[in-house]
Design a protein around this nucleic acid. Structure first.
Lengths: 344, 344
DNA sequence: CTGAAAGCGCTAACAA
DNA sequence: TTGTTAGCGCTTTCAG
């Protein structure tokens, strides 16, 4: 029975190309890879034969031979969520430039699944692994004796031997408050995310540092910790404005909180930013732009986090490993209409 | 010089296992794969040798030999966006169950990049391709003579020979309006997304069908088309309520529009849902839950879309292809507080 | 029941 | 300059 119609036709091999060009496979290989000494005309014959047949070398065979597959595994515990996606895009960018393909695996926060995925990826002989997460909290290392380099992005390993790349939340907090100070605010409050989040605590730390340098107290005395939600923003704004009616700026733990705060501030008849300036965190555009007014916010440069992590991984794969430790990527201030000078 | 410390040590091969077990590689292979007839004791010796060495068969070698790699390529033009992600998760679910690993590629909407990614994936000998998008609009086929099966998810191919799986937007529109009718509404308006989106037009079609069946006119006479934004929702609600002050329900093209509509409705002193019921589309939880009140909405079951598409792909890979055409996946109504009976 | 050998598609030595 | 050969790690005949 003949190999029927279309989708089952055998793939083109270099032997087909060699035959069509009237040379041996070895010669064809050299011609296609620009190796060795060949008569230009021969090279040309092979090239066009390959072109004509639509030849694409079998990556499996190459990988088997060379020990390099030009693939990396991207293991995420964030179910491709809001934070890991920009990280992945940045990583894909850097890896794509290096001709690497990416295996994506979602662990659903399950250590068993994680181990299984890593085993599978190693069996596929990936050249390296990128581990991403949703939170910057330290997590257990995926292993210290793996046969390929590993870089953590948007999450950090508890092991100091591993390399982790995360956003600089402390710096982000500093950036936010410096901006508020620069626009003349002096009674600044802070509505934070849950205390159990490292990111929330670090943003507080950055803020505190800048306020202390400026010799200013925090409006309300202490940061208000709650959920990362608009609802919490609404509640907290109520609490804060009741306790400190002359608050003239509020730094919010994320954009959702900021949006909730904005609603309450407006409902209480204060103008933004004329009476109260507002700054968020994350630069989640769907939130920040739809808020009234659009939010000034801190962007964590997640694409950069992914890109840098991927570049470290590529370097390690190329035999130039970065030593272990945590690398933080600076945040960027994105100024919109919710901050500006006071107007009475 | 000895093979130094950890990360560069050669991977374990089946030959190592065979040697340790004191058998030939052929025997080891049979033992590990449960093939042929072996003395149980031999099988056991091999198994534990493999265990001891932490042997993982080289997937490249297997793929080279068998012609099956147990990988698929997932090509997205949505930059891992809000719509393609749930689709991918659903797909990964189905594929993972089939022991398939997934190569992720983002085309950034660039046909050149797309072709390049597909070539690369084919060179890697993926067993199949999944193409996803952000819009349900027909798009050019990625090719009719590819050596592997292809399924489109959350986007459709212009070619009737290709299989596409998309959400049933018409049905979603019907679902929404039927729910409004069931809660006793009779003056229903519609704030839609941009007319250039197929999804927007299909939701209108579903709505129209149900209203006609019920013999009711559309409040405002025609759907109001605009951007998929809160801002448009605010504007459109103003227009609609001015033109038809006794509107008692508004079906919105998506959750962002609904949220904008909600704000305006409240600002104009109407209660939701007592005076005006509101229903959104997408079930984007960050939006739908933060809206006041939380939005009843239509969920497109994107996870299902991805899962079903992946299952068709697996079936095709297994030699049982589904014939070409478009398969639509039903939407689900998610009832929250923005709809309910009228109360005067 | 087990071992030896061939071969998947490719590249790199070595011969011619 | 080109062809031949060996071998990457594995599975699968086919002998023993």
């Amino acid at each position: 029975m003949p190999d029927s119609l279309s989708p089952a036709t055998r793939a083109i091999t270099i032997r087909d190309v060699a035959t069509l060009a009237g040379v041996s496979v070895g010669t064809a290989s050299k011609a296609l890879n620009g190796r060795g000494k060949l008569r230009p005309e021969t090279r040309e014959r092979v090239t066009s034969a390959a072109e004509e047949l639509g030849f694409r070398p079998n990556a499996l065979a190459r990988g088997l031979l060379s020990g390099r597959t030009f693939t990396v595994g991207l293991v995420t515990s964030d179910s491709f969520g809001r934070f890991s996606i920009p990280v992945m895009l940045g990583a894909e960018d850097a890896l794509g430039a290096g001709q690497m393909s990416v295996f994506m695996c979602d662990t659903r926060d399950d250590p068993i699944r994680e181990r299984h995925h890593i085993q599978t990826l190693l069996a596929r002989r990936v050249d390296g692994l990128l581990v991403t997460g949703r939170r910057t909290e330290p997590r257990p290392s995926i292993g210290s004796d793996l046969p390929v380099p590993v870089v953590y992005a948007m999450t950090q390993s508890t092991s100091p031997d591993d390399l982790s790349v995360i956003p600089d939340d402390v710096g982000g907090g500093e950036l936010a408050v410096r901006h508020l100070l620069a626009t003349g605010r002096e009674r600044i409050g802070h509505v934070a995310g849950p205390y159990r989040f490292l990111a929330a605590r670090q943003r507080v730390a950055g803020m505190t540092k800048v306020l202390e340098e400026a010799g200013l107290p925090l409006a309300g005395g202490a940061p208000l910790h709650g959920e990362w939600s608009e609802e919490w923003g609404r509640q907290a704004a109520d609490i804060l404005l009741r306790a400190e009616p002359d608050t003239d700026a509020i730094f919010c733990g994320n954009d959702q909180i900021a949006r909730g705060v904005a609603e309450t501030v407006r409902e209480r008849g204060r103008r933004i930013p004329d009476d109260v300036a507002l700054i968020g965190f994350d630069n989640w555009e769907a939130m920040a732009l739809a808020s009234r007014p659009p939010l000034t916010t801190v962007d964590m440069s997640l694409g950069e986090v992914g890109r840098i992590a991927a570049e470290h991984l590529l370097a390690a794969i190329a035999g130039r490993p970065t030593s272990g430790g945590v690398e933080t990527i600076p945040c960027q201030l994105v100024v919109r209409e919710s901050t500006g000078p006071r107007r009475h």
